[in-house]
Simulated assay, not measured.
Amino acid sequence: MKRAYVLRWLFFTVGIMVLALGISLTIKGQRLGISPWDVLHVGLYQQIGLSVGTWAILLGIVIIGGTVLVTKKPPRIGAVLNMLLVGIFIDVFNWLIPEPSTMPGVIAVFLAGVIVMGYGVGIYVAANLGAGPRDTVMMMIVEKTGWSISKVRRGIELVVLAIGWGLGGPIGVGTIITALFVGSIVNLSLPQCTLLLQRLIDGNGASLTRHRHHPSENAKSL
């Protein structure tokens, strides 16, 4: 039990770091455009100041507070840590990673960011310790309305994108790329990471055969 607990939190933490690295890479390649939520974060940063990571945290606090008021349930610790750690690591990686000076560099950094983001989500979600605040509110709306996840997700991202664009956030072909491909990468990475975590928890390869034809149910919702 202790081994499983430690491994799940390790996967969660590493996944959050990888996710934040991917976000920072796409921000460095923002001449192509970035994901809807990051358009909003960057727009707020450009208009008001603070930092991109700080705005990710502040909006997360607002979202978590709203979901608590609606559901009357306290947030899972994973959701709170997700909110805090993603914002912190975004700022750290934004500081560490240099700006690409050429368009080929921008394209390479951005595409690497999209792939890294997809795997970061797969790693942290495999730990099953709680989704981030944005995914939490998405699921709350799905439960309240009965609408499909894809419909709710697109609706939320369109609203966020419109606000971010109004604030001057960068929109471009990269915004479309993230919308189309990050989810597809997660559909690949999540079963892989779930299987790897289970094999590490078991301490042997027994789960490989057991799960070979039964990928994680979590992948179906993404």
Rank of each mutant, 00 (worst) to 15 (best):
I27Y: 04
Y124M: 08
T54K: 11
G53E: 09
L85W: 04
L50P: 01
V125D: 05
V14G: 08
S51D: 10
P98V: 12
V106R: 06
M17F: 13
I34Q: 09
L25D: 00
L19H: 10
I48R: 05
V109N: 04
G65M: 12
G87F: 06
Y119F: 15
S51L: 04
M83K: 04
P36C: 10
F12W: 09
G53P: 01
Y124T: 05
I107T: 08
V92A: 12
T71H: 12
V70A: 15
Y45V: 01
Q47Y: 13
I48E: 04
M103A: 04
V42G: 03
D135V: 01
G66A: 06
V114F: 12
R31K: 14
L81K: 09
V62K: 10
R134S: 06
I63R: 04
V125K: 04
T102P: 05
Y45I: 02
G122D: 11
G130F: 03
I123V: 14
I48H: 08
V92Y: 10
I48Q: 06
R31Q: 14
L40D: 02
S35N: 14
G132D: 12
F89V: 10
L21T: 11
G122M: 09
D91H: 13
Q47T: 14
F11Y: 10
L96P: 08
K28H: 10
V137L: 14
G29S: 11
V137A: 09
S35G: 14
L25W: 03
V14Q: 02
I77M: 15
V68A: 12
I88G: 06
I63K: 02
A126G: 05
T102R: 09
G130M: 09
W95A: 15
I63A: 05
D38L: 07
D38Q: 11
L96K: 07
T54C: 12
I88R: 07
L59F: 13
V39Y: 02
P98C: 09
S24L: 06
I90D: 01
G43L: 03
V42S: 00
T54E: 13
G15Y: 07
G53I: 03
F11Q: 03
P36L: 07
I107D: 04
P100N: 12
V109A: 08
A20D: 07
V42L: 14
G15E: 06
T136V: 15
T13Y: 10
V114N: 01
V68R: 11
G66M: 13
T26Y: 08
L58T: 08
L25K: 02
L19T: 09
Q47P: 02
V42R: 04
Y124A: 03
V106N: 06
T26F: 08
G29T: 06
L25S: 00
H41C: 10
G122K: 00
W55R: 00
D91W: 11
V70P: 04
I63L: 14
N82H: 12
N82V: 08
T67M: 14
V52M: 02
S101C: 08
I64W: 00
G78R: 03
T13G: 13
P36F: 05
M17W: 03
I123F: 09
M117C: 13
V114D: 05
V62Y: 13
L50D: 10
V52R: 00
G49I: 07
L85G: 00
L50K: 11
M83W: 06
I57D: 01
R31I: 13
G60H: 03
G66D: 07
F11S: 01
I23P: 00
L111G: 09
